[in-house]
Amino acid sequence: MTVGIVLVSHSPAVAGSVAEMAAELAGPSVAIRAAGGTDDGRFGTSIDLIAAAVKAADSGDGVCVLMDMGSSVLTAKTLLEDLEDDGGGPLVRLADAPFTEGAVAAAVLASTGQDLDTVVGSAEQAWSMRKL
């Protein structure tokens, strides 16, 4: 079992492409789900799409959610509050991380069987990976 990853973007294509890239680098053992755009395919965010992606990505070890910006962050935070209010749902943590780099870091760590805290931590450490 591995920690699942959910990618939330304002754009369906961005979420889908980053999920595809992270999956390619992490291998087939990690469940990575994209939740980009609204439920009718426009730019924006859908709490129902994110909730469904979290459910699909969870294998019992929890889910690390990464968001790009704006409504992605606010909608993911709202879902987390709902899950806490309702209780009994999957263990979910939001990673405060750069979207693409954090997704790859989280997916690679998840593929090694690390726990949710470690996976979220690896995504957040992506801020410190300098490029130049």
């Binding site: 730019f43 924006g44 965010t45 409504s71 606010l74 909608t75 709202t78």
Partner: peptide
């Protein structure tokens, strides 16, 4: 409002 707005105003007004 949270479910259908789409933009940042959805979670803000919805909450």
């Amino acid at each position: 409002i949270v479910a259908k707005t789409g933009g940042a105003s959805g979670p803000l007004y919805g909450s």
